[in-house]
């Protein structure tokens, strides 16, 4: 290896990183830049764009052209964005409430059992999301696993219409990304020194106070990471709103897909994607700031 590789450590580094930069740079970064440019162009009704500068795609988020050509406020898309944020927030909060005690419970277990629980929780994460969401159709659907016994026992006499509702989407989103909440919280709880809990208890803390004054503040990085990891994919979710919302209850993700697959409005789809990226960047900045503050607090 030493015979043909450069000996300068800097050249070696960049040679080693070159494939990564080439692949992710060309097939991910450049496409996103192109997408950004497309969002400022005019739509071509046959797909693609006309290379003319235009802010129409962004205007379309909140306004539309009336028959006589004047801009009028149209909250249709804003409502979808708002619903996406609402449903994503709801799913994130449910994931947090449901997931935190589980992550905490796992940290209390002996090591080999901890690993086994983590394995159990990661399994669904590694299996196909589409299939897992499809399973919920069987559970929530008309004559599904929940309805059928209730119907046959006469507890209800007509369908509960659980499918194609915001509730169904929220359940689907929660179910999809639950492991992403548990894992980072577990990772930060695992580092928690349990002697601190004993110290708090020794210093007259009730069990609730141990939780609120020691455990939760010290696992905050994990909680924030978990919330970001759940919120971002929820916002861009396509499968859950599509299968469980029946395509009528749109969310940002499915709206984007719709622009490319059916509506053939690429600039608008690109603008919506840029909007999502902006949210991601803000979340990451928020997280990085917190991490920086913690690092500064621990050092100086």
């Amino acid at each position: 290896m030493s015979s043909w590789l450069p000996t300068n450590p800097s050249s070696r580094r960049w040679l080693g990183l070159a494939p990564t930069y080439l692949v992710i740079g060309i097939f991910m970064l450049i496409p996103m830049i192109i997408m950004g440019t497309y969002s400022f162009m005019e739509a071509n009704p046959y797909g693609g764009v006309k290379p003319v500068f235009s802010t129409a795609a962004y205007l379309q988020l909140a306004w539309e052209y009336d028959l006589d050509g004047t801009l009028v406020f149209n909250p249709g898309y804003l409502k979808i964005i708002w619903r996406s944020i609402g449903l994503s927030t709801m799913a994130t909060v449910i994931c947090l409430i449901f997931g935190f005690p589980v992550a905490y419970y796992i940290t209390l277990q002996p090591e080999n059992r901890r690993n086994f629980y983590i394995y159990l929780i990661t399994i669904p994460f590694w299996t196909n999301l589409l299939i897992r969401t499809f399973a919920w159709i069987i559970i929530l659907g008309r004559n599904g696993v929940i309805e059928l016994p209730l119907l046959s026992l006469g507890i209800i006499d007509k369908s509960l219409r659980m499918m194609y509702s915001d509730g169904a989407i929220a359940i689907g989103l929660t179910y999809s990304y639950l492991p992403l909440m548990v894992l980072p919280i577990y990772a930060s709880l695992e580092k928690l020194d349990f002697r601190l809990l004993e110290a708090a208890s020794d210093l007259y803390s009730s069990r609730l106070e141990i939780m609120t004054k020691i455990v939760i503040p010290l696992s905050k990085p994990g909680i924030i990471a978990g919330c970001i990891l759940v919120f971002i994919p929820c916002l861009g979710a396509f499968i859950a709103p599509n299968l469980l919302g029946g395509g009528k209850k749109l969310m940002l993700g499915s709206l984007v897909q719709f622009q490319f697959a059916s509506a053939r409005n690429w600039p608008f789809g690109s603008a919506l994607s840029m909007l999502m990226l902006a949210v991601v960047v803000m979340a990451l900045i928020f997280y990085a700031r917190g991490a920086k503050k913690r690092a500064a607090g621990a050092e100086s």
């Binding site: 002697r195 601190l196 110290a199 708090a200 020794d202 210093l203 020691i214």
Partner: peptide, 11 residues
């Protein structure tokens, strides 16, 4: 009250 071996101070 206890003084812990590794102090267990709240970081």
């Amino acid at each position: 009250n206890t003084v812990f071996q590794h102090y267990a101070l709240f970081p």
